[in-house]
């Protein structure tokens, strides 16, 4: 589903690469966590996958497509198969919760009735059925987080990318978000989550640990997490 071969990414003007020789394969239906300290390159890695950045070296394949050779006009096609939950949500503050979620379907040319119905349905699933018509700017951080997740899920993407989805939430709310992600995973979605949140680690999830733009550990699901990873993550968090 997602393959990276010796990928590097250097932002213009940066003295060191944000990603350095990253090789990684994520299979269909996997649930993968990118862990690592701040500045490790987690967000950068996710951005490569939905064409927000172009690798300066190596190859990135998503769903069999080589993103380096993708024509700009093909980018929307790739993005429609990927739901993204951004670290800063990227909601339209003045638009209603429903409009925010509907947008992802509208740009695909879905019928108005279908758009409204599906957007409202997903918002109910994330527990915001009672706030459909509120402007997004009047929601709490946790609620905005859930709107962002609803917008990512409403298109029923093959891949769900989440950047710090439990960012500034308390443990209970974070657990709620995790459940949403697990539900998507159970339905067959490939889920990739960048996080420092130790609450998300453990369980039956693969953890890829990044440091200074390099993969320093890749622990498969069902294997017990080495104490070093847990400790390091706790320290950062």
């Amino acid at each position: 589903m997602i393959e990276l071969f010796h990928v590097s990414l250097r932002y213009p003007g940066a003295d060191r690469p944000a990603l350095d020789d990253v090789t990684l394969e994520i299979r269909k239906g996997e649930f993968v966590l990118f862990a690592g300290p701040s500045g490790a390159g987690k967000t950068s890695l996710l951005r490569l996958l939905f064409c927000a950045e172009t690798a300066t070296g190596g190859q990135v394949l998503v769903g069999g497509r080589n993103l380096a050779r993708l024509k700009p006009t093909r980018v929307p096609e790739v993005r429609r198969n990927i739901g993204v939950v951004f670290q800063d949500f990227k909601l339209l503050p003045e638009h209603s919760v429903l409009d925010n979620v509907a947008l992802a379907l509208e740009v695909q040319g879905r019928r108005f009735e279908e758009v409204q119905e599906r957007a409202a349905g997903v918002l109910k699933q994330v527990g915001l059925g009672h706030k459909l018509h509120q402007p997004a700017e009047r929601l709490s951080g946790g609620e905005q987080q859930r709107v962002a997740i609803a917008r990512a899920l409403v298109v029923e993407p093959a891949i769900l990318l989440c950047d710090e989805p439990t960012g500034n939430l308390d443990a209970e709310r974070a657990q709620g978000i995790l459940e949403l992600l697990v539900t998507a995973h159970v339905r067959g979605t490939t889920v990739v989550v960048a996080t420092h949140d130790p609450a998300l680690l453990g369980g039956s999830r693969r953890v890829v640990r990044l440091e200074d733009g390099r993969i320093v550990a890749d622990v498969p699901a069902f294997a017990p997490l080495p104490a070093a990873i847990l400790d390091a993550t706790r320290r950062v968090a």
Binding site: F50, E77, R79, V84, K90, L92, A104, V107
Partner: peptide, 16 residues
């Protein structure tokens, strides 16, 4: 600008 950027991030074509 922000709104346009977001539309593009969720898969809007330039035409849209």
């Amino acid at each position: 600008r922000e709104e346009i950027a977001i539309m593009k991030l969720v898969g809007a074509t330039d035409l849209f």
